[in-house]
């Protein structure tokens, strides 16, 4: 289980760096959604399923959709 935790944390850091570095804002939003889903699995591994459900619903679902609605109103590339 410690190997799974280390793998998830490494991918989490990679996702966080990639979401900052990428130039396309839509790609950044999708990478941020993947970051949020990984974070939900890590919360479950740390033993707090309540926070995991909230993170999966709010972080991966509603926040992504609000960001995409905002991008469709403004520009896609920075």
């Amino acid at each position: 289980m410690i190997i799974l935790d280390l793998l998830l944390l490494n991918i989490l850091v990679l996702c966080a760096i990639a979401a900052i570095r990428v130039r396309d804002l839509l790609s950044a939003v999708i990478i941020f959604s993947a970051y949020s889903l990984l974070m939900a699995i890590i919360w479950l591994q740390l033993g707090s399923p309540d926070v995991a459900i909230t993170e999966a619903a709010v972080g991966a679902g509603v926040t992504t959709m609000l960001f995409i609605a905002t991008i469709s109103k403004t520009r896609r590339y920075e």
Partner: peptide
């Protein structure tokens, strides 16, 4: 998730978000 929020993980906030996400 809203109804069984006092028995297991979940509650009003998470369940309400899922219901709103279905409508969105």
């Amino acid at each position: 998730i809203i109804v069984s929020g006092h028995l297991g993980p979940g509650g009003g906030f998470a369940g309400g978000t899922i219901v709103a996400a279905s409508m969105i």
